[in-house]
Design a protein around this nucleic acid. Structure first.
Lengths: 111, 111
DNA sequence: TTGACATGAAACCTTTTGGTTTCGTATAAA
DNA sequence: TTTATACGAAACCAAAAGGTTTCATGTCAA
């Protein structure tokens, strides 16, 4: 009842940082080694390496060792956990909309 | 280009904590004052108050002052920003699936 | 008007986060 | 077989996050 899957925490955690979201967008357009990713940001390679570790933890990227490089691939399937969690609230939309509308009316009346 | 809206950061930040996600689920079933929310968790009221502040920052809840109570209402509309961000990646699904499939095959071959 | 209650707010503490610099190591290339 | 390159890993640091206890305040109810 509490949370559909325990795998959801690492995903939402990964999505919480703007740099990591930017990395996801970048890798969506094609796999890249760390060095190439790092050169696109105003921070050092080790900093990016940590972000990649967190993304890996959420299974959002998969690493392909290739010679002395390590190619990072985006794994869109991992986003499904987050999407599912969010879609649960679709059914509350109409109901809550009415509730909040009434609330706004009252507030207007008492101003 | 970087991020559809700057309003997305407070939303993803709010969603990153399991307690806050639990509060959202609770409030989806009906508005509640702080005290009632706090009594459902193994932490103090001020701790919950901080979580509510972060949720408010992401516009995920709206407060209705009512006498000496402050009723917290869930605002599902605020989740749209996150949903939209995620849905952008739907179009990469098939493409990446193939890419990762080939990757898995290669790995199998070289083990 | 006095007391109880629901809450906000401040001060404080510990752990996590997001970054850095420095160093070690495996692979590719000269 | 050197040398350059791409990376991982460790040690360190400041700031943010997630809690706590304590106190002040506004509102309801006797």
């Amino acid at each position: 009842m509490s949370e559909s899957r325990e795998t959801i925490q690492p995903v939402f955690r990964a999505l919480a940082d703007p740099t990591r979201r930017a990395i996801i967008r970048m890798l969506a357009h094609g796999p890249r080694p760390i060095g190439e990713i790092a050169s696109a940001f105003a921070m050092t390679r080790p900093a990016i390496a940590k972000h990649l570790a967190i993304l890996r933890d959420g299974d959002l990227i998969i690493v392909e060792p290739k010679g002395r490089e390590r190619i990072n691939h985006f794994n869109p399937a991992a986003l499904k956990a987050a999407t599912d969690w969010l879609s649960y609230f679709d059914r509350f939309w109409d109901e809550k909309l009415e509730e909040l509308k009434r609330l706004a009316e009252h507030k207007k009346g008492s101003s």
